[in-house]
């Protein structure tokens, strides 16, 4: 699999590696997918990178590759920001080859990472018709998570037809941020757009929301989909090739 902009892959790895340290990458003719739960089984991440999004891609037979995201992250940190990246696995090999090429083709780096033997449990992700779908700037969402984490470890997300309200409370007191739905949309990427079938109010652990925001560099927008008694879906699209979707169980007030 070859990417002209290796930085896309680095952003994917940085977006995943705090939530899951290692994961099984499923490679087929259609592209690369990954599905993994965090260690406490409260969040799940689903990655899709379709073959047509790569500059070149070939997969002669389906492979499940156990990869340490922590190690992969370290190796990718050596990549130049404009480098192209090629990842290859030879048949019956126990390692993955990561090749980086500088833009002006004068520097070639090659790394080999040992593969891990992981038992990959595959869960079915049901198509859900959410009560509410919010689109907003990913930087704005990251900022809100950071600000709300000052006040508490849970964030209540309430949606109304006017907008969406994030609130947190704790020992210090409480705080809330309300975003009004954008009316005159000049730049889609900066708009707050809410499609609401019915209002929802759900509480989530801000620690996880902040971890999800590590994937924000992938896309200027983030999608938040909510329904009562349903895991939150937090989606960052990967331009022209797929997405990273995080799912988080709501805090259920015992």
């Amino acid at each position: 699999a070859r990417l002209l902009h290796g930085s896309i892959f680095a952003k994917v790895i940085e977006g995943l590696r705090e939530l899951v340290n290692e994961a099984t990458w499923e490679c087929s003719g259609n592209g690369i997918t990954l599905q993994a739960m965090d260690s406490s089984h409260v969040a799940l991440v689903s990655l899709v990178m379709r073959s047509e999004g790569f500059e070149s891609y070939r997969c002669d037979r389906n492979m499940s590759l156990g990869i340490s995201l922590v190690s992969m992250s370290k190796v990718l940190k050596t990549m130049g920001k404009d480098d192209s990246l090629t990842i290859r696995v030879n048949d019956d090999s126990d390692s993955i080859i990561i090749a980086m090429e500088s833009q002006n083709q004068d520097k070639f780096a090659d790394y080999e990472l040992r593969l891990m033997d992981l038992d990959s449990e595959h869960l079915g992700i049901p198509d859900t018709d959410y009560s509410c779908a919010i689109k907003m700037p990913s930087s704005e969402f990251s900022r809100i998570c950071r600000d709300m984490s000052i006040m508490g470890d849970s964030v209540l997300i309430c949606t109304t037809k006017e907008g969406v309200k994030f609130s947190a409370k704790g020992d210090l007191g409480q705080g809330s941020i309300r975003l009004v739905q954008t009316t005159n949309i000049e730049k889609e990427e900066e708009a707050v757009i809410i499609e609401m079938k019915e209002a929802v109010a759900l509480t989530f652990a801000v620690r996880y929301l902040s971890m999800f925001c590590k994937a924000a560099p992938l896309s200027p927008q983030v999608g938040l989909s909510l329904s009562e008694d349903t895991p939150l879906m937090c989606e960052f699209k990967i331009a022209e090739m797929g997405h990273v979707r995080f799912y988080l169980a709501p805090k259920i007030e015992d």
């Binding site: 089984h41 869960l123 049901p126 799912y247 169980a249």
Partner: peptide, 14 residues
């Protein structure tokens, strides 16, 4: 805990 079970049930049921 409840949340873990909740998440697993949501995806498992499918």
């Amino acid at each position: 805990n409840i949340q873990q079970q909740f998440l697993l049930n949501f995806f498992k049921q499918y």
